[in-house]
Design a protein around this nucleic acid. Structure first.
Length: 178
DNA sequence: ACGATGATGAAC
DNA sequence: TTCATCATCGTA
């Protein structure tokens, strides 16, 4: 089974998309080579009231992609050196997205995976599709509820009551030594 | 614990 | 136009 996920997958509540992305594959094609990696950690950012979400400041040049159509990439630059990959969720006109925080066991960190996959501003606003060189596939991996760990999002302690909302989803680590 | 390193948004 | 801040990471 190998199905490219389109807008109907992303045009759903942000937290449902964040949870369901666990076990899906992020695929990047660069210079003719495809790299497919399991999505193992995500965070949801939802609407203008979420003080951790970039859309809290209203619609701006930077966060504009979040307000657009579901199933597109929102890639932004932070800390003077890091690119972050987000997948836009919800209906056109509503600002929300899911941050991809980890792929597999190795690329555990949102800036590590973008560096490895050569994701930067060139992919911002692009649709998640083969023609963009970046897309998401369902390859039939099932992640059970019992394998999913939830917790507060990382690096947003300024966000008041939203700082402790459990909008981070991760696949529980397997025991070492397989 | 902290520095690297620059875009962003809000204040002035 | 200036300034503090930032959805981080590697080194200490």
């Amino acid at each position: 089974m190998r199905k490219v996920l389109g807008p109907s997958f992303f045009n759903r509540p942000t937290l449902a998309v964040a949870r369901d992305l666990l076990g899906k594959y992020l695929v990047r094609k660069v210079r003719g080579k495809e790299i497919a990696l399991l999505i193992t950690e995500t965070e949801g950012y939802h609407g203008t009231k979420d003080l951790a979400c970039h859309a809290r400041a209203g619609r701006t040049a930077r966060n504009d992609p979040m307000w657009g159509k579901p199933g597109h990439a929102y890639v932004y630059f932070t800390y003077g050196m890091h690119w972050m990959l987000n997948l836009v969720t919800g209906p056109d006109g509503f600002p929300s997205a899911v941050l991809i925080r980890a792929l597999g066991d190795e690329l555990n960190g949102p800036a590590k995976l973008t560096k490895f996959l050569q994701i930067d501003k060139r992919l911002n606003t692009k649709p998640l599709a083969k023609t963009s060189g970046l897309w998401v596939e369902d390859r039939g991996v099932i992640v059970k509820r019992s394998e999913i760990q939830r917790g507060p999002r990382v690096g947003i302690s300024y966000a008041g009551e939203y700082a402790h909302k459990p909008w981070r989803f991760m696949v529980k680590k397997k025991k070492s030594g397989n």
